[in-house]
Design a protein around this nucleic acid. Sequence first.
DNA 1: TATGAATGAGGATTCATTCAT
DNA 2: TATGAATGAATCCTCATTCAT
Lengths: 223, 223, 223, 223
Amino acid sequence: MTNSHIMNNSQIIRSERRRKEHEARRRVILKAAREVFFHKGFMDATVDEIAERCRLAKGTIYLYFGSKEEIYISIMAEGMKLLGRELGRLKDIDGGDGMLVEHALSAYYGFYLKNRKYFRIMFLSSQPDLRARVSDDLLKDCMETARQCLGIVGDLVRKGIKRGIYRKVDPWAVANILWATVNGIIMSYEQDPVYREEIAGIELEKMLNEALGLVLNGLRAKG
Amino acid sequence: MTNSHIMNNSQIIRSERRRKEHEARRRVILKAAREVFFHKGFMDATVDEIAERCRLAKGTIYLYFGSKEEIYISIMAEGMKLLGRELGRLKDIDGGDGMLVEHALSAYYGFYLKNRKYFRIMFLSSQPDLRARVSDDLLKDCMETARQCLGIVGDLVRKGIKRGIYRKVDPWAVANILWATVNGIIMSYEQDPVYREEIAGIELEKMLNEALGLVLNGLRAKG
Amino acid sequence: MTNSHIMNNSQIIRSERRRKEHEARRRVILKAAREVFFHKGFMDATVDEIAERCRLAKGTIYLYFGSKEEIYISIMAEGMKLLGRELGRLKDIDGGDGMLVEHALSAYYGFYLKNRKYFRIMFLSSQPDLRARVSDDLLKDCMETARQCLGIVGDLVRKGIKRGIYRKVDPWAVANILWATVNGIIMSYEQDPVYREEIAGIELEKMLNEALGLVLNGLRAKG
Amino acid sequence: MTNSHIMNNSQIIRSERRRKEHEARRRVILKAAREVFFHKGFMDATVDEIAERCRLAKGTIYLYFGSKEEIYISIMAEGMKLLGRELGRLKDIDGGDGMLVEHALSAYYGFYLKNRKYFRIMFLSSQPDLRARVSDDLLKDCMETARQCLGIVGDLVRKGIKRGIYRKVDPWAVANILWATVNGIIMSYEQDPVYREEIAGIELEKMLNEALGLVLNGLRAKG
DNA sequence: TATGAATGAGGATTCATTCAT
DNA sequence: TATGAATGAATCCTCATTCAT
């Protein structure tokens, strides 16, 4: 224990290691939580089961997360970050092949295919009962990532306008629309098996492509 | 012998009244439940509070609904029906003014404005933990109504194609896309206040209109 | 409606019919209750199910029985009566063939084979929680029947003593002992399947016979 | 790494203490439960009352027992063990005084006098509704103890045969018969106050003695 | 007498969270 | 920091019984 707050080198190193261990353990918990939440949904999941699955004491969980809800939303944030990373790769696309937004859709869809389970969780985030028990910081973090994702899409649209591929539209609005459209379609699809099979009767990929075609058709500069 | 299952006239009348009373009581419970669920969300709502609010004994609730979940999904079904009724008015629109899908959007948006609270509930329906405790019939009922709504939109598209307003597309696919798009946008908007104000920064109505414009632009037959 | 309490002939007839109808309905209820109690045990049985099974309204049940417990004990009384009837046939046995108590055992065992399900119920009767909610009259009725059964056995012993078959013992005490012995053995046997198969490993009939043999051996007058 | 499952010395000691504390707490709960169950019977007893009586939180009870039923059956098992211990003392009796089975009866009766309240509980164990919610292990444990008790009685009979005190009978069968007889008599007696006073009209001890006398009479080798 | 809707006390069980060690 | 025993509020649902019709 040092009396002063000035840390010497070895202390810095140690605290650095601490931080890393802390991060690592956090990830371990999140992994376990993901498995449980994915399997059981929020309400039916228990902190006990999460603790058991990562072989930690229940109390320990609460050293890393403030509440069950916070774990849940953290997973949501994680999902958002993953998506952000996927979209982040599109930054340098220049649209030389006439394809811009198409890549975004493709990236999103790819992410969905790899991380389907995250979606249900992301959709639940709007439940007021959940939000109430989560720190604003965490929620803002999510939102910030979402904004970044949108920003990337917006940039693509902007590029397209510059290059004369798209009509002159509000890139931000269009990004929002595209985002919401894709989300809406995937959600309809995820909603429930009955809907998927009996109502829609269309394959998800085909529907997404049609939707994109439609919007792009409207978006493309004429002539 | 009252044991016999042949009912005389007065019995039929009485049972008819019973049925009506039953329906009425059901509605009373649903009204109370709506208030509670709208206010607190599913998890934080309690059957006690619902019972209290409609001044019935808790046990009585269970004469009308099998579980908390069933009440919840019933409200969802109710919302769906309301929306269906709203859209049902569009059946006779003939597109003489060149507007078809626009009316659907307008109806949907109007419904949303009047019944915002229903949306949160409708979105939660995909939670697996909820579905598990609800009768299939109830769920199918919801889906059936949703299908009808989509059918109406699909019909509008079909009409538009016939009249040469829209390109030759798959009406059912387009209906699904429109539906999902509008849903997606409203949901993004409903999602949470932070998003609404800080991220999107666009008014809902304007966004819906832009989205529709975009899609319609792609949908319209070229001159 | 007559103002006086003197009934004319037709009224007597009618009230007689009433009584019969009442008895008949009571029996119908008891029959249904027996099925339910036999199948589910006291605690897991519900009045609802009994009512349903005899196609009567739940409220009607309470016109005939004061409580769930009373129905239960009534079934027990019924069982006792059946047993009493079975033993009643032994009254005129004179022991000419040197067999007296043997007939009682045989009758008891025969009754058991035909009415096994009654036994579990009879054994439960000692639960204080049950007794508390049953009218004393009903309990006394049971006891009275039991006393009659014992009396019959006692008479057989007495006859045996007179005839010089048995030693001079207290017939009443011996009757009680015989009764308790047989009951105890059957109960051990009914107790639970594990006991029956793994512990005792002896067939019930054989055990009863051995027990009787032993007691009779002790009881017989020496040559 | 505390994650590792290798425990050092102090951990072993600590876990040893844990085990002891666990056992102690279990006993505390059982004591309270006994009081409640003895007083109210199974159905009218509540877990709340048990918790209150041992000044533990209700939830804590469920850390030690899986259900109300399990507590109940555990008490039964406890009773069985007590009886087993009482009978266990008879192992070294050699019958030099010509008394063998007599000691068993005496031990049993002594146990009964000290632990009357256990009996009601032991008799109820056959209720199917109870058994359903209790682990098989617990039930088997009870049965095993019962088997041991019987074994002791059986051994006494065997000794008696060897010594020429008893006739050549099947010791196991006779043990069962004795056991069931005594049980049956005590149960008749415990059954209910009315029976005890009005029907039997014989003191329990006297009746047990007479029964034993009768059986022994039949059992004894002839002169 | 028969009904069955309504009651509401009652009770078992769960589980997020805390805190002494 | 880690533990996990203890907490106890919270909650859903049941069901014997009543009573207006």
